[in-house]
Write a protein that binds this DNA or RNA. Structure first.
Length: 277
DNA sequence: TGCCAGGGATAAC
DNA sequence: GTTATCCATGGC
C-alpha cells in the first residue's frame, strides 16, 4: 500500500540511529523488522512511500510505529520560522525523520548494547542476538524468507553470560540479563513508564544496572514515546559545545526536544558539508 | 595501528 | 559533587 504525505523519508529514518534493524536492500528500498513483522519500504517520491503490508497491518502497527498521526509539519514550521540559524538548517536537512514508537523492550536492550559501540557494530550485535534468542518467522513478502523476531524478556532473562559474550556483547552481558530479569519481575513496567511523567520514568529506568542517563533517555524517546526526552551522546555533546558553547536553550523546545535532538544527530552523522553556523 | 564508537560503574579526588 | 579509569570489541 501507499502512504502519501510530506515529512516521511525512509532513508532519513533509517540513518537516524533510532532503530538498528532497518537496512538498505536496493536504491530507495529498505527492509525493517519490528513487532515480529517484516516490512519493506520504498521511497517512490518526496511525498510517497510504498509499504509491503496490508492496510490492516498498517493500521495495527505501522501507523503508530512511524508516528504518522503526529503533525511534524507544525514543529518544522516552528523551527523554520525561528531565530536559530543552525536549527533552521538542520530542520531542513532532516525534515523527513519521524520519532519511531519501537517496542520498549527492544529499545531498552538495543540501547544498552549501543553504549561505546558504533552503529554498524550495534547492528551486527543485535542481529546476532536475534538469531540466537529470537523466534524464527517466515515472511510472505518476498520468497518466504526467514527472519528472527527480537528476543522476549523471558528468553534474555535466562541467557547465559558466556553465550552472550560469543555474540560480541562485550562487558554488557550482565546488563542485558539483569535488565531482562527486571522486566520479568515487574520492576520495569513499560505501560506505567509510558503513562507517567518522563522525570519519574527516567528515574525508574536508571535504577537498572547498566542504564545511565543517555541510554534511559533513548528508551524514553524511541521506546516510550516521551518526545520531550533529549538524549546526549558524543555527537550531541559536540553540537552543544561547538555550536552553542554549552548554552543551548533547551527550555525553548519543551515538549518536543527529542525531535530537535534527532535533527541534530542526523545532521552531524550524515550531512556531507558540516559547515557550522 | 591506533583511535573512536548513540556510556556506565566504580574508585579516587 | 566532579573527574579518572576500566570495561570488550568491531569498524575504519
Amino acid at each position: 500500500m501507499f502512504v502519501k504525505g510530506a515529512n516521511f523519508n525512509v532513508k532519513q529514518i533509517a540513518d537516524s540511529g533510532q532503530c538498528f534493524r532497518m537496512n538498505l536492500i536496493e536504491k530507495d528500498k529498505y527492509s525493517l523488522i519490528a513487532y515480529d513483522k517484516y516490512l519493506e519500504l520504498s521511497q517512490i517520491d518526496d511525498e510517497t512511500v510504498k509499504l509491503s503490508c496490508s492496510e490492516d497491518e498498517f493500521k495495527d502497527i505501522w501507523i503508530d510505529y512511524f508516528d504518522l498521526n503526529y503533525d511534524y509539519g507544525k514543529i518544522i514550521q516552528l523551527l523554520s520560522d525561528g531565530e536559530d540559524p543552525f536549527l533552521r538548517k538542520i530542520t531542513d536537512f532532516g525534515k523527513g525523520i519521524r520519532i519511531l514508537q519501537q517496542e520498549p523492550f527492544e529499545a531498552m536492550i538495543s540501547f544498552i548494547i549501543s553504549q561505546n559501540k558504533n552503529i554498524p557494530a550495534i547492528k551486527s550485535c543485535i542481529e546476532a542476538l536475534c538469531s540466537r534468542y529470537g523466534e524464527p518467522k517466515v515472511s510472505t513478502v518476498e520468497n518466504n524468507n526467514t527472519y528472527y523476531a527480537f528476543p522476549t524478556p523471558y528468553a534474555l532473562a535466562q541467557a547465559e553470560s558466556t553465550d552472550l559474550l560469543q555474540l560480541k556483547t562485550g562487558y554488557r552481558d550482565q546488563y542485558i540479563i539483569r535488565a531482562s530479569q527486571a522486566v520479568m519481575e515487574g520492576l520495569i513496567d513499560f505501560n506505567y513508564l509510558k503513562k507517567c511523567d518522563s522525570t519519574e520514568a527516567l528515574k525508574v529506568l536508571k535504577s537498572v544496572h547498566g542504564i545511565g542517563d543517555k541510554v534511559a533517555n533513548c528508551i524514553l524517546l524511541f521506546g516510550l514515546h516521551h518526545i520531550e526526552a533529549f538524549p546526549v551522546d558524543v555527537w550531541i555533546k559536540k553540537v552543544l559545545e561547538e555550536i552553542y558553547h554549552n548554552d543551548f536553550p533547551l527550555e525553548k523546545y519543551d515538549g518536543f526536544a527529542g525531535i530537535v535532538q534527532q535533527y541534530m544527530f542526523y545532521y552531524m552523522r550524515c550531512c556531507p558539508d558540516k559547515s557550522f553556523g
